[in-house]
Design a protein around this nucleic acid. Structure first.
Length: 350
DNA sequence: CGGGTGTACTCCTTTACATCA
DNA sequence: TTTGATGTAAAGGAGTACACC
């Protein structure tokens, strides 16, 4: 029997919160809770205040994480939430995970034969056995509660376990009063959760409500957590980009400073040359470039080389001036946006 | 049609906690 | 074991867009 995970596949937003779908699930007779159970949730979702009744925003109405095992045929793959939510990676992972022996990173810990479900507190091994080893949908979600079983002994595993427990809560947000008097505690996401969120961020750096809910469901987190993660992720991206931009501008500034220094030096040399050859250098450089007979001289520096046979001081000076002009002009054009007042071409000073 | 209000969302700043050297 | 630095989850406020009255 082939199974599929239903995450709400009607076009209507939050459709999987609708009663209609629950009716369908009930009718099909497969509705397996993967959360920590109502007892763990503290039932706080029942006592939300009215402001948070929207649920999506405050993440308060995320229902107990639920794995709906549906006969495959009534739910065509093309209508699964992953494709509908346009998370191609999600579709991909689910598809790959369905293949036994896959080495996909997300399927590594997905083997239902290796781990019991997150509800293993109550010894729900039998429930696990109900799902097919090939059921990517059911095993995928289990991936994110894998550390709960105590396979890790360090502190982080405890945090992750607690995170999973809290993440499964249907509380509105991690407020102090929502968690049975426990003080608010920052909980780090597991590597798998972070990687999953990263993948989704690559596709969409913002989430619509459906995507947020689907991700939260997949990762066993509250929608609010997913939302916050994306906020912080966007902030990190922006910060990184700012750093890159800053570095780039810094390099531009250094380059321009160096260029300015070089041009100033060149200007000094030309002034020195002008003072030593006052008669010839009094000719404006523009005159030299505009003279039809000097086309050859003004166009390229090779022309200057051709004129070196003349060994005439005025020609050499003119060549220097024109070469400087032809080289400096484009550079100056580039500099204008950055420092139009600081950088001056030699011909301007002449 | 313009203004007031509520809602939902994002960005930004700050705080608090976890982790690591 | 302690401590400071760093990374990041999370809270809260401001601003904006939109729908509704």
């Amino acid at each position: 029997m082939e199974l599929a995970l239903s995450l709400g596949d009607t076009p209507k937003p939050f459709a999987f919160l609708d009663k209609a779908q629950k009716v369908v699930n009930r009718d099909l007779g497969f509705c397996m809770g993967l959360g920590k159970g109502a007892a763990d949730r503290g039932g706080d979702h029942q006592s939300r205040n009215s402001r948070e009744s929207d649920g999506e925003r405050r993440g308060s109405s995320d229902p107990p994480v639920q794995l709906d095992l549906l006969p495959f045929s009534p739910v065509p793959r093309s209508q699964t939430s992953s494709s509908q939510l346009s998370f191609s990676w999600l579709t991909q992972h689910l598809t790959v995970a369905a293949e036994p022996g896959s080495s996909n990173g997300f399927t590594r810990a997905v083997d239902v034969n290796r781990r019991s479900l997150g509800v293993d507190k109550g010894g729900e091994e039998g429930t696990t056995a109900l799902s097919s080893p090939n059921s990517a949908a059911s095993s995928f979600q289990m991936d994110f509660s894998i550390y709960r079983s105590g396979s890790r002994s360090n502190k982080r595993s405890e945090n992750e376990a607690e995170n999973d427990i809290r993440g499964g809560m249907a509380s509105s947000r991690a407020s102090d009063e929502d968690e049975n008097g426990m003080a608010r505690k920052k909980l780090r996401l597991t590597k798998e959760q972070s990687a999953f969120l990263e993948e989704s961020f690559k596709e969409h750096n913002t989430l619509n409500p459906k995507q947020k809910l689907a991700l939260a469901k997949q990762l066993n987190l509250r929608p609010r957590q997913v939302e916050v993660w994306f906020q912080n992720r966007r902030a990190r991206t922006k910060l990184k980009q700012t750093e890159v931009d800053c570095e780039y501008l810094k390099r531009c500034c250094e380059t321009l400073t160096e260029e300015n220094r070089r041009l100033q030096k060149e200007l000094q040399e030309l002034r020195a040359l002008k003072s030593s050859q006052p008669f010839y250098m009094q000719l404006p450089a523009t005159t030299l470039t505009m003279c039809p007979s000097c086309e050859r001289v003004a166009s390229t520096s090779t022309a200057a080389t051709a004129n070196t046979n003349v060994t005439s001081p005025p020609a050499a000076a003119a060549d220097i001036a024109n070469t400087t002009l032809s080289l400096a002009k484009p550079r100056q054009t580039q500099m204008v946006p950055f420092s139009p007042l600081q950088v001056q071409g030699p011909q301007a000073a002449l």
